[in-house]
Design a protein around this nucleic acid. Sequence first.
DNA 1: CGATCCCGCCACATT
DNA 2: AATGTGGCGGGATCG
Length: 880
Amino acid sequence: ENIFDRSRMAPKTPIKNEPVDLSKQKGCTPERNPITPVKLVDRPQPDPWTPTANLKMLVSAASPDMRDREKKKELFRPIENSEQSDTPDSLQYDMVDDSTVDEFEKQRPSRKQKSLGLLCQKFLARYPSYPLSTEKTTISLDEVASILGVERRRIYDIVNVLESLHLVSRVAKNQYCWHGRHNLSQTLKMLQEAGELQYGELMTFFQHKEQDLEYKFGERRKETIPDSQNRPLLDFSEPDCTSASANSRKDKSLRIMSQKFVMLFLVSKTKIVTLDVAAKILIEETQDTVDYSKFKTKVRRLYDIANVLTSLGLIKKVHVTEERGRKPAFKWIGPVEFPGKTDNPTGHSPTSNPLPRMQRGACAPYQICATGKQRFTRHASFNNAQPCEGTKRKVSSEPNSPRQERQDEYCSKMISLAAVCRQKIEEDTSNPSIASPLSCLPVLGDSDFCVNPLPQAVFPVVQADVPSLSLPNGISSHALHPSTPAASKTENGKPTLLPNQPFLCFPSSSLFMLCSSLQENNLRETLSTTADVGNRSAEAQAAVPPAACQKRSSHKCASPSAPVDGEEPAAKKQTMEQSDVPLSLVVPKKPFESPKAESTPGSGCTSAAHLEAFHLDLSSPAAPQAADKESTKPLNSQEQEKWSQNKDPDEASSGKEHISKENTNRPFLPQYLCVQPTAGLSGFNFLLSANQAPGAVNLAASQLPSLSIPCVVVPSAALASFPVVCSPTITNPLSPVPDGSFSAATSMNFSMSGLASTTPVFIGTTAVVTPKVSPVPSVDPQQPAHPTLHLSPVLARSYGAVKLDSPVQCMGHPVTLLKLQQPSSAPLTPKSIRPARQEAFFKTPGSLGDPVAWKKNEGNQTRNASSVQRRLEISSTSPD
DNA sequence: CGATCCCGCCACATT
DNA sequence: AATGTGGCGGGATCG
């Protein structure tokens, strides 16, 4: 366009410019050449020259901005010309006069011209990609700004991103040192490693946790801990090395964001990261309260970063068309493998700089750390903990204690996961419409569903408690290294992972989610809290909660004995019921709106957290429909089909059928619950954790009923795995089920594609399976109404293993689907629920509760432990 | 109308 | 206090 403009404008513009030049030449030329543009000086333009000039002057007088623009244009020209078509200039003489007018008009074209990406290109053009080691180029921000004709502020945007990749480093006040790309690969490598750790950790972390839990905290924790320590280093530690100063500074969230953003790509299998996901992930990390506005802001920043990265040729914009619709995304087109360089940190030649060398590699990336205040030492933190950005504004943020940090981190991780899940979900669910009904929430629009992991609950506790706990090394190591999210491979993780892996089934249609494990202790709390929530919701709508409870039926499919609902401990159930909320939450999309707030600190928080964790929003419109239809129905394959159909007109049906079949086939189910969405919710669904005793689990599931979603199941473990799941949604007709290939771990990226819309998929933490059959419908003969399957944990595990192997289909798996009955009558809840959820929705852990609360939780190691234990127990207990 | 993202206010950091 | 940095988000522009 620019070009066009030029061409078009060219006549004028050039003219104008030229004329200007003539008159003004002084100013212009100088600027271009050297550097300093002295705007001020130039402007003064004293002389009235030509008539035109006068006009200009007038104009300029009228709007200073105009002047600036003009200048800018001039400045740009050279560049632009060089870049693209230069030609235009030549034409020009046409109308000078008009030009003036035009100018005004012309000026505009600029939006693109002014784009950060273009600016960045110009910026980069000024420096050699691979400068001689010897030469050191310093960059004067002012100078560059003037040369490029932009405000300094813009230069900061560029430089900050470049700095995050170590292409430049700040040496002094307004001075940066250009390093070029020599170290880029190293940096990327580091980031990749760090990314794996961080994000991978999340994944792994969860797993570990679970596992650990299962296994026991103590042991592992120790091990893990160390890791964590190291990690921290990664995160920030370096900074010190490099430039303490830098670190000290504020947050530099932009840099951190940039690094994280890059990490996401590097960790991602697909190398494609959607903005919303990235934003979500980043948000969480950053902090707590996430609200819609924050989300938007994050996205904005990501665009800024993306523009720079695009200019660097590292990413390119693409659109991911998912079921839900297409989303803006970026694909990594930079190097993926980092050759040996890896090593070296040392190497960085060029710079004298400070780039940090990372100890591990990881660290390097983040130099920055903490927000101004304290940098935490990040011992523990997995992530970088990001400094909370908020510091400024939010301020008050206290220095976090290490723990908190951890927690936060965890939380953030969780969040991330959640985000991921959410995405998927969103994608899947795309239909928002429905969901909303209730909610007051503003509409998010599609994207908004969120799922939030409960980080808090889980994490905090764990963390706190566990500090020692941290993942066991061995395990962790496995997990970690694999980096990828664990999930995908069954093998590795298997042992660890497998055990509890959760699986998810996705019906083609829609959604699902989540998981968290409840922990006993936590549960209580949560329950109570949740209960509260539930109550609330219940109150609101009365119906829901109970309904949910009912739904849940989980029993083992396969296992004969499958414990049916009854099995569950009553108490839990009850609690569960009440609590159910926690597990599944559906959040309407727009939680944002809702004031985050609810969060009361303390218990509230926890509850909130839980909620968040789970929320899913499915607001997909379709879902609702489905729900309605189904609501009462038991899940039948048919019904499902309908859903699918409904949802997906196209594809769905077939898949569903399969499912049903499958279900029948399957022997038994693992613990997971599947909930189908029957009722009216918009479509969500959920799941629950299996962890609990089977019974418990079931309960949960039942509780969830509100969700309409087709189904999902997740064992608690699942949480860990987190992965998310995606539902294949509808929209894609595409992929038939894929092989299990997509790893959960990757969750982030993980594309739905793999999943066939129709086929349900199960995901284990480690492995994903797609069952051919649809579990849902048939599920249990036993309980049509509430089909639930239980698998003994053990079985499940085995399962997992198995599955892993044959990711493909569930076939063997016992998955069962339960239908929840939904009370047709009341739509559940989502609406009712919402309120609470909404709040929860974006909150991050921090926001959720007060830190204190968390800590408390932590304090209660019990929870964590408990959760773990539970799991263990469960497994042990499993009815088999 | 949603996706992009320019622009620059303004807070915080540094000098 | 002046100046450097950079978060942030309003609202314009693009597609």
